[in-house]
Design a protein around this nucleic acid. Structure first.
Length: 426
DNA sequence: TCTGGGGTCCTAGGACCC
DNA sequence: TCTGGGGTCCTAGGACCC
């Protein structure tokens, strides 16, 4: 068997890069993309990073700065990013059949060769091809474990002269590189763990590999231990070509303005239940329980309230009206008057694949009902697939523009997925 | 006025059982 | 004077990821 390397392919400033594909004039200029509700900065071009704009900064605090530095600002456009992501993934598949789509902008590939130089050439070719075919710039890091491949990717991105590709192998090279990686930049080490580690004198990734396993396990539990071993070149994270089935499905949004009335919350919740139920059906899943949560704005001075409740369903379902009913009864139960609410959300829990559960006598009795509901949902989904999301929807979510809807003041078009939004050529 | 959304896994502690 | 031990399951909270 040929020795193999993990290749971590990461799109550079992905959301910004997607916007630039359709606005090439923004190349070389500062650009940021905001989170839902135009809340905070979640993607920055290199020029925006150079201006000192931080990840996660609230957008409203930077309005003036954006204007005075001619920063182009976009609302997030997940229809566009999701579609661009699958295009990138399609290209990557040509370079290795063993591929794990890790996130919207990252993939792990297994690449096999006896000759590391040959691998570097392949990775460089992959990078060029992705850019030529999709317009998205990527960097590639190669190493013996996923965590080390992430480190290599970071170097490919940051270091001058790598051409966006870096391979890390051999004990001496790995040791030298890890010495230059701050421990908080290691994949799997978050803010809390980093603080704990620094307090104990662990500053670099190399420092971490030099502690005993017992010590690391005690400080950071088995998660930290796995990270440490991966840094030592021992693979602990499985390679998952088939993503495991989802265990929960969530839909929640912050409101465009604060909401106090129960009926407005009910409308919003209906809309989120619809979306969550659609997600269930596209994955062929059914929920066994529904959870609803409700919260005020934690940054405000106003009185705070967080409510949540969970109810089981009589039997697992992905039928929107049944899920609506259950969710609304939870909401009415946890709702308290007199608060300014910022967010409501729904979680579908105890998910099971359709047809994978034990049937009961009731199921036989209800079979005709069940069939009718299924075919109604199927029709609904196929109409929406053909004519666009929400062409057909439930009345409970209300009609027209609502105060709870998200702010999306700077949304670009769904260039690649919506015929209606393709710019007209004159 | 304005601070995202959607996930997973691990652990500790309590309930419960024999 | 004295109040078992071991196992499983569930849940809430914490930490992490992108």
């Amino acid at each position: 068997m040929e020795p193999f390397f993990y290749a971590m392919v990461d799109c550079n400033n992905f959301y910004v890069s997607c916007e630039r594909v359709f606005a090439p004039a923004l190349e070389g200029r500062p650009v940021v993309v905001l989170s839902n509700n135009d809340g905070c900065v979640i993607a920055r071009s290199n020029e925006a990073k150079a201006l000192g704009i931080g990840m996660g900064e609230p957008a409203f605090k930077r309005e003036t700065f954006f204007r005075s530095h001619s920063v182009t600002v976009f609302s997030s456009n997940y229809a566009l990013y999701g579609d661009m992501s699958s295009r990138v993934q399609q290209v990557l598949t040509r370079f290795s059949p063993e591929i794990e789509h890790y996130s919207i902008d990252e993939s792990f590939l297994i690449m096999r060769s006896r000759d590391p130089r040959r691998l570097l050439e392949q990775a460089a070719e992959m990078r060029r091809t992705v850019y030529r075919w999709t317009g998205i710039p990527v960097c590639v890091g190669l190493a013996r474990t996923k965590t080390l491949a992430k480190v290599a990717n970071r170097i490919a991105k940051k270091r001058e002269g790598t051409n966006g590709v870096w391979l890390m192998d051999g004990a001496a090279q790995v040791r030298d590189e890890l010495a230059g990686v701050p421990v908080e930049d290691v994949w799997g080490i978050g803010r809390r763990s980093a603080r704990k580690l620094r307090a104990c004198g662990v500053r670099s990734a190399l420092d971490l590999t030099r502690r005993t396993r017992d010590w690391v396990r005690e400080k950071l539990t088995v998660c930290g231990l796995r990270t440490m071993m991966e840094l030592q070149g021992i693979p602990c994270h499985p390679f998952e070509e088939q993503p495991p089935a989802a265990k929960s499905v969530t839909c929640s949004r912050s409101f465009g303005t604060r909401i106090t009335r129960l009926d407005a919350l009910e409308e919003a919740l209906c809309a989120y239940v619809q979306r969550a139920a659609e997600k269930l059906r596209t994955r062929d899943l059914q929920a066994g329980a529904v959870q609803v949560f409700l919260s005020t704005n934690r940054f405000a001075e106003d009185p705070q309230y967080n409510g949540s409740g969970c109810l089981p369903l009589d039997r697992p379902t992905s039928h929107t009206p049944s899920l609506h009913r259950k969710a609304l009864s939870i909401l009415r139960d946890i709702y308290r008057e007199g608060y300014k609410y910022q967010k409501v959300g729904v979680l579908m829990l105890d998910l099971a694949e359709r047809g994978q559960r034990q049937l009961t006598f009731d199921d036989y009795r209800n079979a005709p009902d069940e069939t009718r509901r299924d075919s109604l949902m199927k029709t609904l989904d196929s109409v929406n697939a053909r004519f666009g999301r929400d062409s057909l929807r439930f009345g409970g979510a209300g009609l027209g523009r609502k105060e709870w809807h998200m702010r999306q003041r700077r949304l670009s078009r769904r260039f690649t997925t919506s015929w209606a939004e393709i710019p007209q050529v004159r």
